[in-house]
Structures are given as C-alpha cells and as structure tokens.
Write a protein that binds this DNA or RNA. Structure first.
Length: 1026
RNA sequence: GGGUGAUUAGCUCAGUGGUAGAGCGCUUCGUUCACAUCGAAGAUGUCAGAAGUUCGAAUCUUCUAUCACCCA
C-alpha cells in the first residue's frame, strides 16, 4: 500500500487523537520510567463558557510541547486540565441567553432557580473549549478534568469534586488567621452588573470629556488677594477674589464634596487654608460649607491648583479624605443613579454642616445613611444629574467665565474678531469655561459601562500580610519567572499591593461562608460568624446566644429584618430591637455575596490535586513544574497563586513561570472582535491542520516578543509537514520500511553519507533539548525545520539515491540509516507536530507502541559525529553548490551533463571524489572528471579549497559574462579577506582576542586567499584569451 | 506622568562582543519516478540617528527620534 502524496490532516487528526485518548496515553504517569522525576503543569483554566482564541492556542501549544517532551523522556508527567467558573462572565452569558430565549429574568426566577440554570449553561458550554483543546492536540489527562466550582452545594449530578470545599476551607482558615476582614472601602463598582469588580477588570480608556471650572464662594463673603507669579517671583496676575476656583470632570460628585484641598506649598491659597467655602449647588438655603485643607495630592500646576475632595467617589480623593478625616458621602445607589433613600436633603445637609463645623462626628454607617443629593436630583441617572448640576451652577453665575475665544474652549472657541468687525464688543462676551479634554475613563471590561468608585461593604484579603513569601520566592530564585524582565512587573505589583477585594455581588460563585445574626451585646450592626457550614456557623452562634437560643436561618437580610417586625409590635429602631431580651427565635442569614473568581482560581494548583485531602497526586505533582501563561494575567493570577499557596500550604505553587506574549494579527494589531481581525484557531486548524498551526506558533515564540500571525506563514509550515511526509514516501518507495525492525539505537554505518547524517542527527537532538530546556521554543522549532528540510530532505535524501543502486550491503545499511534518521525526525518533531508524526510512525514500521510514548533519544554528538565524514560531506556539498551556481549563472542548459576538469587535486580530494563521485556527478550534472594542468579556452572555473574545478564549455559560455561572474565573486572574497587581514594585522587583536578566535580568523583568511588566487588565475587566463 | 520593550532585507522576525541570518515575498530557470504544498540559482542591508567603551559593537553605555504595550 503506497502512501498518499500528502497527509490528510482533516481525517487523521480526530482518529489519532481518539487513539491516544482511548489508550490512556495522556494519563498522569503514563510512559513514566520507574522512579522517574515528576513533571507537572496545570492548565490556566479557560472560562467554562469561553471558546478557544489564538492566545489559548498559543498558550496550550507551548504547554503541550513541554508535556509531550517530558512524557517521552519517561518522566512522571501530569498535565492537569480544567475550566474556571468565571463568575461575572458566565452569569452574563447565561443571562444573555435567557433573555434571548424569553426565559424569566434572574430576579424573577430567584437565586436557587437561577443557579440551577447557570449549571445547565456550564454543562452545555464546557464541551466547547475542551473539544477545541483536543482539536489542537492538547495531551491533558482529561480523566482529571477539574472545575473551580466542583462540589458546590447546588452542583448537579456529575459535578462532584471538592474544589468548593477547598475554597471554603481556605476562606475560613484565612478568616481565622485574621487575613480576611470585612470593611467599608472604596471599590470599583460596575453599575450594570451591580457588583464590585477588581481594578484589574477595569479598562481605562481615553475618552472625550469636559473639564468644568466652578467658583466655590468663600463663606461669609470673605475675600483674599489672588496672585500668580512666574518662576522669578514677578507678579503676572493679581485680583481680589471671594471664591476659590475648582475644576472637575465630574460635576455631579460635587454634591458629596467634603473639602477643598490645596498643596501646602501653594502660596496663592495660603491665606484661606482653614476657611470654609460653599459648594455652589443645591438649594440656596441649605447650601453646604466645606473646609479648605492642605494635602500633598493637589498639583499646584494643574488647573487652579485647588481640588475638590469627594471621598466616596474618587480613589485619590478617598486617600485625601482618609488622611484629613474628611467624611465620605455616598451619592449613588447600586445602579449608579443618584440616591433616593434616606431623609430629605434639608436634614441631611444640616447633619453634614454640623460635621463640617466640627460640632459632631459620624461613624461609618451614619455617614453612609446621609443622602446629600438634593431632592430634585434624587433618582436621576448620574449623567443626567451631571447636566443638571452644570446648568444650575451656570445659571447662578458661579461658573468661571472667560472670553469666547479662550483657547481652552477647544473647538467651541470663537475666532477672535478684529476690532473693525466688532471684535471689541465680542471680546466682552464671556462664556462658561468648559474645556474639551481627553480624559481617562474607567470602563468595566465585561459590561462596558463607566465604572463608579463606590463606598460599599466588602470582604478583603489583607494582601500585604501574605505577600512576603511570594516576593521572597522570586527574589531568591525559588521561583523563576521567564523572561526575566517580567519579574519587574511582578515585583512592582506585589510591592505596591492593595487590599484585595474578594466579594462580588453576584449569584454565580462560591457563596461567602459567613452568617449574620443580631449581636447579643446590642448595637446596630449584625454580628457575623465565619464557618465552613451552616451547622458549624449555628454552633458558633450558640456559644454567643446560649444553649437555649433558637435560630431560624432566613433567606436574606430583608427577611431577617422582617422577622423582627413580626415579633415586635412597636418596631422603632434597629439598634433597640437587637437586644438579648428581644425575640427568642434568632434570625440568621448568610452573606449573599460570592467570592471573586480569582480567589478560587488562585487555589488551582493545590485544588486540582485534591487538597485539602492528602492525595497521592498532591505528593507526586505539587509543587508543579511550570506555569505557562499570558503576560496579561501576571497580576490576576500568577501573583495570587503565589500568595495563596504560600498562605495556605506554605509552599510555592510552581518552580517556573513562563510568561508569553500576545498573538497579534499580521499588522501587529491586537486581535479583537470589534476590529474584526480575529483569526479563529479552529478555522486555521480546519484549513491547514493542527500541526501547521502549532508549528507556526512555536517557531514564532521568541521569549517576550509579541507574535504577528499571518496565514502565509502557517501555509509554509503546512508545507513543511508535507515535506517530511514525502521524504518518508521516498523512503517507503526505496524499501526502507519493508520488513523493518525499527531500532532506537543508531545503526552502525560505513558509508560516509550515512555516517555523516547520523552525526547531524545527534547534533540536532542536542540543539532541541537545549532549546526546550531553556524554553526557547522558537529555537527548537527553527532548528528542526532547518534540519529536516535543509539537511535531511535537501541533501541526505539526494545523497542516498545513488546508494540505493549499489550492492546489497550498502542498500541495507542505507535503508537502516534512513529509517533511523526519519524515526528521529518524527520523535523530535512529535512535541511540535504530534499528528503527522504519529501517523508516519504508524506507517513506517510495525511498532510496539505509539509515538506519543516513544523514547526520547539521549545519544550525543560527541560519540556519533564522525569529523572526517563531516568534512568530506562539506566538501562534496561545496563542489556541488559551486558547480550548480556557476552553471546557472552561465546559463548552461540544466539537463546537460558536462565533462569536468580539475587542477590542484590533492590525494585527500581525490579520495573524497572517488568515494562520492556518483552523487556529485548526479547532483551537479557532471559526466566525467579528468585531472589537468591547465584549462582550455572557454572554461568556467570553480575554486573549492586547494583545487579548482573547470567546466570546459567552449561556445556555450560568454567570456565577458564569465569575467563578470568571477569579478563579482572576487570582490566579495576580497572584502571578506580584507576584514580578516585588518584584524590579524592589528597587534592588539592577537593580544586580547581569545586564541580560538585568532586561529579561526587565520584559517578563514587562508581559505579566502586560496579562492582569491584561483579566481585571479582564471581571470588572467580569460583576459589573455578574450 | 511613570514603567517596559521595540527600531536589522520588500514583509514578519531571529541574532548577549568575533565573516549580518531565517521564513515569506520577488526574479530567472526547471514536469527525470519523494514532494509543484516542489527543486535549482539569484537580487536586496549606513543593523533608526549621534556619541562613547573595546583590538573588535547589530550586540555593552549614554543621549536623541519614532512606535508599541502596561500602569496611573
């Protein structure tokens, strides 16, 4: 059965993958030698509802290369797969699909029913990305597929596992150690999903915005002299003011201002620091006064140098407010509409005024209860409110006014009009100063709505307390980050770590294991206990409330409050009712929030291996060997895994992190759906085969460099697979695979050609191993490409052709050698191109097992390279290339077999010629060789080493053209020789350069000079004749 | 504004101090039985610019320019 002309990737890939999988080839420990060292990799879990994009394809190709390589080397190998529950994304996908199907909304169906619905979605989606990873050839141990929510209380049949237990246990442990706490902090709030999100899930995008300038009048009509000076202290501008000028891009937040801050060094405002000024919005009769304070934050050179401080709605302001004891008044509700709750504005403003005058203080909860949104703006969307605020201030005349042609107005600025055209009059017309400005605006990366900094109650990990070991491990080299420079990113982030907000106001996720009950000691706040289960939580509460207490676990806080209402006739205030002498049945409810997805995926290395159980896998495979991941989740994931494994099990999660770059389109643009430049890896696999896609990605995986992907490149590597295929087809036609006993040990060869290729093979094996050990995937792939195509196919296959016509012993030896060399190609290429190599492996011999479990070779160049054979073949190749080149340039007809002459033939050359005459003649199209003293007229000369070959082609050769050809060659040689001579002529070179470099330079120069002499001789002869 | 990186053939990129490279593209030629998803031959470079270190710099240092990304 003759082989087809090409490899049919489409039909073969699934068949081969199935064979691997059904044979258990990817199982943990498969193909491991006894007592082998272990090699383990956890997959960066893709979103369960996601689908494979180019980044995944790249990431998983690299992992698969390493995993297959180690598995073939007989290491105890595990590639642990799984998916991530991806809280916000999965909830979004599910809700979107529910809406499309006309199903009831999340809120209509309620939490339990919704969760059931999301699980359905998870089960339905899961297959997509897993199937796609299989298409790519990923050799994960699928029998161990993990999920970050496996074993959750509401998980359906078949979704068991203990990841949930691990997550909850870690939360409880960390809580008990004081590493997790609850608090009111400013967080990024996504008004669409109505949840906190991490600052890493916020995209800052430069957008067209405005900067409004407003006057905050000083209290009691106070005035001061406002002076601006230049660097030398000369007065540039001076006027009497009764206000301080403030610029803002978000006027609606003025309602929550707690102060105006100026830099302590700012002389312009020094006299009014400590004074009160008025927020120029809201009902005139209740207008609030706020203090002017100093803080390092305001930049005196930016705007007016004075900044309004709205602690509850801006991160910088929040820091200033904390430093200065300025109250933070929350203005918006969870959907970022202006608050509609609480007491009327007049009352709220009165309280705030008392605070500003220092007459009273508020605790956190009291502050949060104060709604400073004026009655007419309550319930309004934040952007509508912005317009309303601007209008009200402008109407009242408190906007900073400038001439209509002020350049700060941007496009709106009127062109100054010449006086004769009425310009003088126009100049007097003042308009509000509203600058058009590009401003950085935060958007939710999922919801795409503007993120609102919001003061809310959240759970936090005290990251600062657990970051130490994570930093030390990388500093002292316990954990290696590649490429090195990504360490900086890692350090920078961890050294400036902020508390990690881990609560999310979602339903899909690990519900926080905290229960609330009234505090037996009284007070307005719920008392909370943290426990792994409800039963344990109630036990803890019982300790507080006494053995006779009865608890009723209610659905939420609302229900718990309702409970009181039923029991108490004269329900007046929350504080009073939560007393020990209250109702006998104590209402309890669980924290409705879920954990940040990264909290659970941070436990991925131990969680997938069965922790907290002391499993066999945990012993064998933890810490894992390598983590391969994209640079975009160094903070998200790598840093968190480091912190969490150290915090939980006191051990590094992995030895090495290989951080890879981004796959871009061929123009270097980031692939994005909105740009429409996304290359779908599945389409590419469909078109070119998985091997070609994989090889392309590997060959471009230069460490730390983005790769720009083009289809041409993939097609080129598809052709590479075909090339190998056809080399095997040639072998098959020449009986290489007939009745064959394939052997892993290199054959004993006597023929120079065979001895040479065996040595070359040994070299490439070392190159590939070295490259892979250094994570130089591109070096490994490119070296293999050059070897298989450039050495095996271009030269060895050609050299072998005459050998197949020789006697039986030589044919047998050549068959054995070619069989072995091709086997080595398959073995070494297998991690990169698993499908075509597995197929060839099967076609080329009867084997004991599949290639996926073949032994990776360990032979060394040191023992297999035959220097003499190598030199001889180099000489042969030089003769062939020189002849071919001369012939092509002189337009000698391709098919013409020409007689060849040679001068200066030494005994070594003679011997080399004799041994290789057949193949040189065949490949250079030479009829015969004859030694001579001088060449006849019209001979093309080809210098090779000490001898010069000549093709006497009288009549076929244009003398002038031959002269031109030789002169060109001469020019090149002389330039090279000149450089070498210059170097050797410099005494300092001989002194300072290493000896082998000097030697090499000398040898090179001699070789050049030999060629130069030969060419000069030929030229002299031609010129004589011409 | 801070940080990181890049700038090498027409394009995409390798190249950590010692003769400037690869793939793709381009030109010419070629259907002899491994392969036209091929073969042979060929052209194309102020290694962004400037200064420095060195016997020697694409490579190390400094500055400049341009671009990209990350963070604020």
């Amino acid at each position: 059965m003759a082989m087809d002309k090409t490899f049919d990737a489409k039909s073969a890939e699934t068949r081969i993958y199935d064979a691997w999988e059904t044979s258990g080839a990817f199982r943990a420990g498969a193909n491991a030698k006894p007592n082998a060292e272990s090699f383990s990799v956890v997959i960066p879990p893709p979103n369960v509802t996601g689908s494979l994009h180019m980044g995944h394809a790249f990431n998983n190709t690299l992992q698969d290369i390493l995993v297959r390589w180690h598995r073939m080397r007989g290491h105890d190998t595990l590639w642990q797969p799984g998916t991530d529950h991806a809280g916000i994304a999965t909830q979004m996908v599910t809700e979107r699909e529910m809406a499309a199907n006309g199903e009831p909304s999340r809120r209509d169906m309620g939490r339990d029913a919704f969760l059931e619905r999301v699980w359905q979605q998870k089960i339905k989606s899961r297959g997509t990305i897993i199937g796609q990873l299989k298409r790519l050839g990923a050799s994960c141990d699928w029998s161990r597929e993990a999920f970050t929510m496996s074993g959750a209380p509401n998980a359906p049949e078949g979704e068991d596992g203990n990841f949930h237990d691990a997550v909850i246990r870690v939360f409880v442990d960390m809580y008990d150690k004081g590493l997790i706490y609850r608090g009111k902090r400013l967080v990024n709030w996504d008004p669409h999903f109505e949840t906190a999100i991490s600052d890493l899930e916020v995209e800052n995008v430069e957008t067209n915005g405005h900067m409004w300038h407003f006057k905050y009048p000083l209290a009691g009509g106070r005035t001061y002299t406002y002076v601006e000076k230049d660097e030398d202290g000369n007065v540039l501008f001076e006027e009497e003011r009764d206000y301080i000028s403030i610029a803002t891009t978000r006027p609606e937040t003025m309602l929550g201002d707690g102060a105006v801050a100026v830099h302590p060094s700012d002389e312009r405002y020094a006299t009014i620091v400590g004074a009160l000024c008025e927020i120029p919005v809201g009902p005139k009769e209740h207008r609030r006064l706020i203090p002017i304070i100093t803080d390092e934050y305001p930049d005196p050179d930016f705007g007016s140098g004075a900044v309004k401080i709205t602690g509850a709605h801006d991160f910088n302001d929040y820091a200033v407010a904390k430093r200065g004891g300025i109250p933070c008044y929350r203005l918006m509700d969870t959907s970022a509409r202006m608050r509609g709750d609480g007491a009327p504005y007049a009352e709220a403003a009165e309280i705030a005024m008392a605070v500003a005058r220092g007459e009273r203080t508020l605790d956190e909860a009291e502050t949060d209860a104060v709604n400073l949104v004026p009655d007419d703006l309550r319930g309004m969307d934040r952007f509508e409110a912005r317009r309303a605020v601007v209008d009200q201030i402008t109407e009242e005349g408190l906007a900073v006014m400038v001439p209509g042609h002020d350049p700060r107005l941007g496009k709106k600025a009127a062109k100054p009009v010449a006086p004769e055209e009425g310009g003088e009059a126009r100049a007097e017309e003042l308009v509000p100063l509203v600058e058009e400005k590009l401003i950085m605006q935060p958007f939710g990366d999922r919801s795409k709505v503007v993120i609102e900094p919001m003061l809310t109650d959240q759970w936090f990990v005290d990251a600062e307390a657990v970051v130490g070991p994570a930093l030390d491990a990388v500093r002292d080299g316990t954990v290696q980050i590649l490429p090195e420079r990504d360490k900086k990113v890692y350090f920078h982030w961890l050294e400036n770590i902020e508390p990690w907000c881990i609560s999310r106001q979602l339903w899909w996720g690990h519900q926080i294991p905290v229960w609330y009950a009234p505090n037996p000691a009284g007070g307005t706040d719920w008392h909370h206990v943290c426990a792994a289960t409800e039963v344990e939580a109630l036990e803890k509460l019982r300790v507080l409330w006494g053995d006779d207490a009865e608890f009723r676990v209610l659905q939420d806080e609302q229900a718990a409050l309702e409970h009181f209402r039923v029991y108490l006739d004269n329900w007046t205030d929350e504080g009073a009712i939560r007393q020990a002498q209250g109702p006998k049945t104590i209402p309890v409810f669980r924290d409705p929030d879920v954990l940040d997805t990264w909290f659970s995926s941070g436990l991925w290395p131990i969680g997938t291996l069965g922790w907290p159980e002391e499993t066999e896998e945990l012993k064998r495979y933890f810490p894992t060997s390598v983590l391969i991941t994209g640079f975009d989740i160094i903070f998200f994931w790598v840093a968190r895994m480091m912190m969490m494994q150290y915090a939980v099990v006191g051990e590094r999660p992995f030895d090495t992190v290989y951080v890879h770059a981004l796959v871009r389109d061929e123009k270097g643009k980031k692939m994005s759906k909105s740009l429409g430049n996304v290359l779908d890896p599945l389409d590419l696999i469909e078109e070119y085969g998985a091997d070609a896609v994989r090889f392309t990605l590997s060959s471009m995986a230069a460490m730390g460099r983005d790769l720009k992907l083009s289809k041409d490149r993939i097609a080129g590597y598809r052709n590479f697979g075909t090339k190998l295929w056809n080399a095997c087809r040639f072998a098959e036609m020449n009986g290489v695979f007939e009745n064959r006993t394939a052997t892993a040990t290199p054959p004993e060869a006597t023929e120079t050609v065979n001895r040479w290729i065996i040595g070359e093979t040994a070299r490439i094996r070392e190159t590939v191993d070295e490259a892979l050990a250094a994570y130089r995937f591109d070096d490994a792939a490119n070296a293999l490409y050059r070897f298989v195509w450039g050495v095996v196919c271009d030269w060895y296959v050609e050299f072998s052709k005459p050998l197949f016509d020789k006697d039986e012993a030589i044919v047998a030896e050549t068959r054995a050698t070619m069989g072995w060399v091709l086997d080595q190609c398959m073995v070494l290429l297998h991690p990169f191109m698993p499908f075509v190599t597995e197929e060839l492996w099967d076609l080329s011999a009867k084997r004991d097992g599949m290639l996926v479990h073949a032994d990776w070779p360990e032979y060394r160049a040191e023992t297999l390279v035959d220097t003499a054979a190598e030199q001889e073949m180099r000489w042969v190749i030089a003769v062939i290339e020189g002849t071919r080149s001369a012939r092509a340039q002189m337009r000698v007809p391709v098919g013409l077999y020409a007689p060849m002459l040679v001068t200066g033939f030494g005994p070594d050359e003679q011997a080399a010629w004799d041994r290789n005459a057949d193949l040189i003649k065949r490949l250079a199209r030479i009829e015969s060789l004859e030694e001579t003293e001088s060449f006849p007229r019209g001979t093309i000369t080809i210098p090779v080493g000490t001898s010069t070959f000549g093709l006497p082609l009288e009549g076929l050769v244009d003398i002038a053209e031959e002269i031109a050809r030789l002169e060109k060659a001469l020019g090149k040689l002389e330039k090279e020789a000149g450089g070498l001579r210059g170097r050797l002529g410099n005494p300092k070179f001989a002194e300072s350069a290493p000896e082998d470099v000097v030697e090499e330079t000398k040898t090179n120069l001699v070789a050049r000079e030999e060629d130069i002499a030969a060419i000069k001789a030929a030229l002299a002869r031609l010129q004589e004749l011409g």
